[in-house]
Design a protein around this nucleic acid. Structure first.
Lengths: 211, 211
DNA sequence: GAGTGTGAAACGATTCACAGCC
DNA sequence: GGCTGTGAATCGTTTCACACTC
């Protein structure tokens, strides 16, 4: 049951790097050319110590006694995260959530382009969603090839999700973000991340009871 | 040691308990009355060892050499998570995401009821979203009181989110699930959890480059 | 024999604290 | 003097392994 894959960056570091990037953009928008781990950490909502440790995975990009050059550091993190290339996203599932995600700003920024939206339901196929037209999941292979999809977002009910993971894998989609409430098995070589909204609510409920 | 010591579940355990609950429901739907840590762990996508350790926080509810009674264990986890009470949810932000969430099954199950949806934009106020009518954030205090809201879901742009956290806190909403891309400061006593969709995509992008 | 419950070991992530450099 | 970069200490989580119970 090895999760395998020699991963260069620790998972936790990876998640924070995206926050630093956002914080650096904010600082740059404010006209700041340089920053320090203290300032940046505050903006990103973490402590300076872990920030420096995280950055040390990328090599030495700061100057002792001075700090970091905002643009330089942002560029370097971007490159590390693979954000200097274009990502083509397909949304699988054209229900409420799928439709909302297809237009969601967080999904259409920084190199992520939603290129297609698909569904199984014949009643939905042909519908316009923003600039896209809902296509059939039966045509997934063609859609993936045509749009050169490299990331899929699964916004379908739990039962359908597992099958779709395999279909996507067969069509060389190797990165999937799932909103299905169930844990999914993934073929080796596929990266899957889950966002589980009802789990989040349940955790809040517990914390509220404690509070 | 002390019996009076507040027993707080580790965060990681808490997140998994919700998965066990879902797995138990699946098993119950299959007509199974009893299960073991092995079977349950497989269904929940974790290893049996951590499952037993997690359950040990709740006390001893299994039988050695036999396993667990499905319904009994589910009931016990439910109670621990505070799911035996009713939770009244307000969605703040009636854009695409807010609308989608208000009808999302994961949000309307297991004791969570979406009771209100609010926005700042006068153009949206009065709109129907499912059975709800969009109300003004200016009326938040009344809405919270009227519907006895105890959880808020923030589906607004990043800049608006921080102010809203304070407004919610002033109105005694102590649990918030935020979809804003920024880390937010929270007043003491407030529980906030974040779902950051663009971070998830960025992590996938990195993993894809690695793989 | 089967499977739980739990100390102890291993692992991983965070924080501390300071040497090194500007 | 100020701030980075990083080993060492700490803290939290997961895995192991086995005593114990049915």
């Amino acid at each position: 049951m090895s999760e395998l894959e020699a991963r260069v960056l620790p998972e936790a570091t990876l998640a924070r790097l995206t926050q630093y990037l956002r914080a650096l953009n904010t600082l740059e928008a404010q006209g700041r050319e340089r920053t320090s781990s203290g300032v940046l950490a505050k903006e990103a909502g973490v402590n300076p110590s872990i920030l420096r440790k995280d950055l040390s995975w990328l090599g030495s990009y700061g100057t002792r006694g001075v700090g970091y050059v905002v643009r330089e550091l942002a560029e370097h993190i971007s490159r590390t995260l693979g954000l200097n290339q274009d990502w083509k996203v397909a949304i699988v599932g054209a229900g409420n959530l799928g439709r909302a995600l297809s237009g969601y700003a967080g999904f259409t920024s920084r190199g992520f382009n939603v290129k297609a939206i698909l569904d199984v339901d014949p009643a939905l196929i042909g519908d316009k969603v923003g600039e896209l037209t809902v296509e059939s999941i039966a045509d997934l292979a063609q859609v993936v090839a045509r749009e050169e999809i490299n990331i899929a977002v699964l916004a379908v009910p739990g039962d359908a999700a597992q099958d779709l993971v395999y279909v996507l894998a067969e069509n060389s989609v190797r990165s999937v973000l799932s909103f299905a409430p169930k844990p999914l098995k993934v073929p080796t070589g596929m990266n899957l991340r889950r966002v589980d909204l009802s789990t989040e609510l349940q955790i809040l409920a517990y914390l509220a009871v404690q509070g």
